[in-house]
Write a protein that binds this DNA or RNA. Structure first.
Lengths: 111, 111
DNA sequence: CTCATTAGTAACCATTTGGTAAAGTTTAAA
DNA sequence: TTTAAACTTTACCAAATGGTTACTAATGAG
């Protein structure tokens, strides 16, 4: 049985529910990135971007380190693990259903 | 390249970001379920549950049909597809990083 | 040292969210 | 036919979200 009440699932899924944050994660795949660079493509202020990054940080999806006066953000993809497990559990159900559908179709063809 | 701006991803991920809704989805795996039954375990009113179900419906994760005076909700797991694809793309990155980590460790052992 | 850059913080705002209560509306059942 | 169950709809509320501006702090460059 999968743990539904995992509070980190709340944080991860709702962090992923925002297109700006998903785009930031995509940017971060290229490597460590400063807040300014993360903010720029979305036409939002630095303060706004900082809020998004805080959400991603609380979800464990990114970490930062301070280099001089810039804050370098780094992707922490291991945090997706719980989300992946949850989704896979549901995907399994989906495949079962698809199997039953296929079976049903085969039975119809037998008529 | 994966589509970041997929608005259905917004709906699906943020729908999954609530523990009550994830629990409802889990309940729905057992089969079609009435709104009252979905509401009961969470100690919320029917009206509150209806809002959650509306969120799940807008995300495409459930559908309903009316039978008599009860509304039967049904799981629609195909809606998880886009979310799965997005996550798998990031998981791939994670595995790459794990591979580099392993490589780095091997190189350290070679010293 | 000074000054421009860059990040952090605080206060504010509109909208959404997750919940409520209360008043309908259907429909099953006594 | 009356009653009660199972929703629906509406109005409301507090808190969180996603954004802003303005101010402060740190730091890198000249």
């Amino acid at each position: 049985m999968v743990q539904f009440n995992n509070p980190s699932l709340d944080l991860v899924f709702s962090a992923l529910g925002d297109p700006t944050r998903r785009a930031m994660l995509a940017t971060l795949r290229a490597g460590e990135t400063s807040m300014g660079v993360l903010a720029e493509p979305h036409g939002i202020t630095l303060a706004g971007a900082a809020k998004h990054i805080e959400v991603l940080t609380r979800a464990g999806l990114v970490t930062h380190r301070k280099v001089g006066r810039t804050r370098l953000c780094r992707l922490e993809p291991g945090a997706l693990k719980s989300a992946t497990e949850w989704i896979q559990w549901h995907e399994a159900f989906w495949h079962e259903r698809m199997d039953s559908l296929e079976q049903a179709l085969e039975e119809m063809q037998d008529d």
